[in-house]
């Protein structure tokens, strides 16, 4: 996936300013930044939910899967009914087989008949992700996927997502959790006030901080990240 010169304006506010980046197959790219940085706007433009005011997005062959921050599913339907509905809407050749595959993937096979509203937030998020994966996308966009999950569910989620990337799926995810970005992202794109400030690995970001605030660079990654933003006026 390649994005070039993306711009987006909401009224007076410039949500994205000339943002660009590339992500290769199998790469895990973390989009991080403070609140209002433009993370969700960027992901929704990449997903085709919103149109950019300027710039372009290129995707390779294959579908782009999108998992929104808030679970986008029908809470009054069962787990199975939700998966089957989206499998049918995706026009998959064998919807029921795809449902079985997703149930196995999410580990919710035994709860297939349960109404989604009765499931925990973590389990709802698993179905949310499963729906995004239904069409076997070559690029998966995850907007704050671990919000509301307990540590065990979170670990399971990343194990699952890392597995997808290992099989060649490009994964671009936004997160507020800087440690999570460091741990699971191969690369990170730092956004602040709609601008892309940094695009590189966690180590590269630390190196950038080292020249500005050496003591912060050697502490935890979150401290290094805050120092990086601070030195750039954010």
């Amino acid at each position: 996936m390649r994005a070039r010169g993306l711009n987006k304006r909401f009224g007076e506010r410039q949500a994205l300013k000339d943002v660009g980046f590339e992500a290769a197959a199998g790469e895990l790219v973390a989009v991080i930044g403070p609140n209002g940085a433009g993370k969700t706007t960027l992901l929704s433009i990449l997903a085709g939910i919103q149109a950019a005011d300027g710039g372009e997005v290129e995707t390779g062959a294959g579908a782009v899967g999108w998992v929104p921050q808030q679970a986008a599913l029908y809470r009054r339907l069962t787990v199975e009914e939700n998966l089957l509905l989206f499998a049918r809407l995706e026009k998959l050749p064998d919807p029921r087989a795809s449902v079985e595959e997703m149930l196995a993937l999410t580990g919710l096979g035994e709860r297939r008949g349960e109404i989604v509203a009765r499931l925990s937030g973590g389990n709802q998020q698993r179905i949310n992700i499963a729906i995004g994966l239904m069409a076997r996308p070559s690029v998966l966009l995850l907007d704050e996927p671990s919000v509301g999950l307990d540590p065990r569910q979170r670990a399971r989620l990343w194990e699952f997502v890392s597995g997808l990337a290992g099989r060649g799926t490009t994964v671009i995810f936004s997160t507020h959790d800087i440690q999570e970005a460091e741990r699971y992202g191969n690369r990170m794109l730092v956004l602040a006030d709609g601008e892309a400030l940094f695009d590189g690995s966690a180590e590269e970001l630390r190196e950038a901080v080292r020249g500005e605030a050496a003591e912060a660079a050697d502490r935890d990654f979150e401290t290094a990240f805050v120092a990086y933003l601070h030195h750039r006026g954010h």
Partner: peptide, 9 residues
């Protein structure tokens, strides 16, 4: 249910 954007993309 936040399904609208997912459906219409």
């Amino acid at each position: 249910e936040n399904a609208y954007p997912r459906l219409t993309r």
